[in-house]
């Protein structure tokens, strides 16, 4: 399972990175979102999968899956929502001001 997940994470990273390097601004935003998904899965995979029950103490279990990465990922999900939302709004605004979402046309002037 871990091997499979590692491959999934790798594919996520591959596609995410590829999308980051495309010309369309929206694809970049999608790429960022994919990368954050990938990171969450990466954290979970590195901690080891399926070592026990859900981390709830009042169910009579004694073996639990690791709660710490889960807590980390939970906050990371919320933060990545904030980041995705912000980049999306940034892309949206950029389009409205410049009337294009083509990154090649959004290059700065040479004097900068």
């Amino acid at each position: 399972m871990e091997l499979l997940m590692s491959v999934v994470v790798g594919v996520f990273f591959m596609v995410g990175t590829y999308l980051l390097m495309t010309r369309s601004l929206i694809r970049v935003v999608i790429g960022i979102n994919l990368l954050s998904h990938a990171t969450h899965l990466l954290l979970l995979t590195m901690a080891g999968l399926k070592t026990g029950a859900p981390p709830l103490l009042n169910r009579g279990e004694t073996e639990f899956s690791d709660p710490l990465p889960q807590a980390l990922i939970l906050t990371a999900i919320v933060i990545s929502f904030g980041i995705t939302a912000f980049t999306l709004v940034l892309a949206y605004r950029t389009y409205k001001v410049n009337k294009t979402d083509d990154l090649d046309q959004l290059r700065g002037s040479h004097d900068e």
Partner: peptide, 12 residues
């Protein structure tokens, strides 16, 4: 505090 849920989930 005792079951799945909490501030993040409830808020969302």
């Amino acid at each position: 505090h005792n079951d799945p849920g909490g501030g993040f989930i409830g808020g969302l």
